[in-house]
Amino acid sequence: MERILVVGVTGVGKSTLAHILSSRLGLPYHEMDALYFNGPDWAINNKLTEDVSRLTAEPHWIIDSLGCPEVRDLLWDRADTVMWLDYSRRVIIPRVLRRSFRRTVTREVLFGGNRETWAGWLSREHPAWWAWSQHGARRREVERRVRDDRFAPLDTLRFRHPDDTAAWLASL
């Protein structure tokens, strides 16, 4: 485990697990949202592919993302381990709602200086809506990739409940 992708839908806990793994394994962690959004008004990094290519050329890293389409294959080709947080909507939705509520109320500064807003809750791109609507599609995409012969050399650890993830972390 030297080049790790932590995958799952929005709000599942990818960043939290990646932070824990980074500290326990001593591997550098790169947050995909921070790489993707690099300016105000949720501006998208126009050098994303270059940045991800440079980071994943390193021998050790952790990235918390299935990967946006521009870099998805690059990430999966260069990873040696996939940690799949495959939790149900029943687990994810309360988490993402609590996180977004906290971020909105506290005006927490996020990637590129952006913030979640009350108006943002009405958008189909809000994390809560996104987690709900993309759950099935993201799950199928990860399933397809872990079964794909192209990515067969990847070690895949699939956790279906937070208790499973916690038990594995305790054994690490």
Rank of each mutant, 00 (worst) to 15 (best):
T16W: 01
T16C: 01
T16S: 04
T16K: 00
L17A: 00
L17T: 04
L17P: 00
A18H: 05
A18K: 04
A18C: 08
H19V: 07
I20K: 07
L21A: 00
L21E: 01
L21H: 00
L21V: 05
S22C: 02
S22F: 00
S23M: 12
S23D: 15
S23H: 15
R24M: 06
R24E: 07
R24S: 05
R24H: 06
L25A: 06
L25D: 03
L25I: 04
G26E: 13
G26Y: 12
G26T: 12
L27H: 04
L27T: 04
P28Y: 10
P28I: 07
Y29K: 04
Y29S: 00
Y29D: 03
H30R: 11
E31P: 02
E31M: 05
E31V: 03
E31T: 04
E31R: 14
E31S: 11
M32C: 09
M32K: 00
M32F: 11
M32V: 04
D33E: 14
A34H: 15
A34M: 10
A34N: 15
A34V: 08
L35M: 11
L35Q: 10
Y36A: 07
Y36R: 13
Y36H: 14
F37C: 04
F37D: 00
F37G: 03
F37I: 12
N38R: 09
N38S: 10
N38V: 03
N38Q: 11
N38F: 00
N38T: 12
N38D: 13
G39R: 11
G39T: 09
G39V: 08
P40L: 14
P40H: 14
P40F: 13
P40G: 11
D41Y: 10
W42F: 08
A43I: 00
A43W: 01
A43L: 07
A43R: 15
A43M: 06
I44L: 11
I44T: 08
I44C: 01
I44G: 02
N45F: 10
N45I: 10
N45R: 13
N46D: 14
N46P: 13
K47N: 13
K47A: 10
K47Y: 09
L48S: 07
L48F: 08
L48N: 07
T49N: 07
T49C: 08
T49P: 02
T49V: 12
T49A: 10
E50S: 13
D51G: 02
D51M: 11
V52Y: 04
V52M: 02
S53F: 05
S53M: 08
R54Q: 13
R54H: 12
R54K: 15
R54N: 10
L55A: 07
L55N: 05
T56W: 04
A57I: 06
E58N: 09
E58S: 09
E58I: 01
E58A: 11
P59R: 12
P59G: 03
H60R: 14
H60L: 11
H60Y: 11
H60V: 06
H60W: 07
W61P: 01
W61L: 03
W61Q: 01
W61I: 01
I62G: 05
I63A: 02
D64E: 06
D64R: 05
D64H: 05
S65H: 09
S65R: 05
S65K: 04
L66A: 09
L66T: 15
G67K: 06
G67Y: 08
G67N: 07
